[in-house]
Design a protein around this nucleic acid. Structure first.
Lengths: 119, 119, 119, 119
DNA sequence: GTGGTCTAGACCACC
DNA sequence: GTGGTCTAGACCACA
């Protein structure tokens, strides 16, 4: 994992978790790596991983079993999907619309541009 | 100005400038508000406005006439448009694509959603 | 046993013991479940149960007959009652008083609320 | 401020904030001490204070103005009151009831005990 | 072994 | 001056 600058590492790790869960790579009630283990893997300070885990736990994405570790919460996927949709509809879509209008990009142009990425 | 926003205030001001220029509200070689005046208007520290102006000047969006004030540079609109396009194609479009795929939104869905905003 | 709870598991088990004794479900000199048996029942590590038993033994709630098992100590009920009262008077009551004052709940309100639980 | 052991310092600081807001010592949109300042006052590491502030911010008790500091959120008092009530009704009241029953304390006994604290 | 908390000290962007 | 993030290292309780 290589970290983009500009965004906090602990957030990037959280996003990585979100993706893994949304893509069904990590399923409900599965154990996620321990704090120390992940810290070694990502070459990051354990505190930073801990911060990610706290963040995810507060948002009910993961939960903790005392002395055993962290696990993917059963509601994780639902929560992540809803958050994504809400963010998309309320923030990103209007912003996209605004920019398209500003640059004179039509819906057809947009679809064509997206097809090129696909290819 | 939204202090509670996560984006830097001086960037928010710069965006405001960009919009005004792109929408032809401010045209080439027109004078923009003075630092002090804008600081009072936006209820912001003058240093912060100065920072915006420096930033815009470095990017040739505005230019300075000593003792008179700042003016919209003739190339401003062109530069802003190009920046916008570059950012759009290289960053936002791929990100849009990624999220659509993650949420299972098709091109048709997207066009329909955009139409709803228009309405 | 609720692993996700913030309270230590061995304490939760100890509380469970205390309740059983106070409610006369387990009486003086009666045998309590073996460590292994209880560990299986509660789906808990035997070490954790052992820890509970050590804890209870230190507080004279249970005693041990070598090779036979653990038994409810004759003074168990008295000790538990006294601990409960002490904790109640010195810690919980003042805390209750503090919160009632903070929320503007009167003694009458409290009695009424308690009656509702009873019903 | 002297810290009780057993409970995390950053939580104790958060509780202290809650009390100050509930008692109207700190009012809506008032500035709270800066991270560094409070750290010095409480003789605690700034990271610990930061942790408290993050915690409070996530719960909309305080908000942040970039480069200026943290402020009491307008909804802070309402949120705190509701949390307190919810916790009281759903957790503490049933627990109180359970213990009273276990120890044979009547409503009248309870009221009398509370009066003694008052005196 | 697991997480949880805290300290110390550093560096950064921003106002 | 403000917050925000990260590292390094330590100590603790718990399973």
């Amino acid at each position: 994992m290589e970290f983009r600058d500009k965004q906090a590492i602990y957030i990037q790790i959280a996003d990585y978790f979100g993706n893994n869960i949304l893509k069904d790579i990590w399923k409900a009630d599965e154990k996620v790596p321990s704090v120390r283990q992940l810290a070694v893997e990502l070459e990051v300070n354990p505190n930073t991983v801990m911060r990610t885990y706290n963040h995810l736990q507060e948002n009910n994405i993961i939960y903790n079993k005392r002395g055993i570790g962290f696990f993917v919460s059963p509601e994780a996927k639902k929560i992540l999907t809803e958050d994504l949709k809400k963010q998309f509809i309320e923030v990103e879509l209007p912003e996209l619309y605004r920019k398209m209008k500003l640059m004179g990009i039509t819906n057809d142009d947009l679809v064509e541009m997206l097809s090129k990425i696909n290819a």
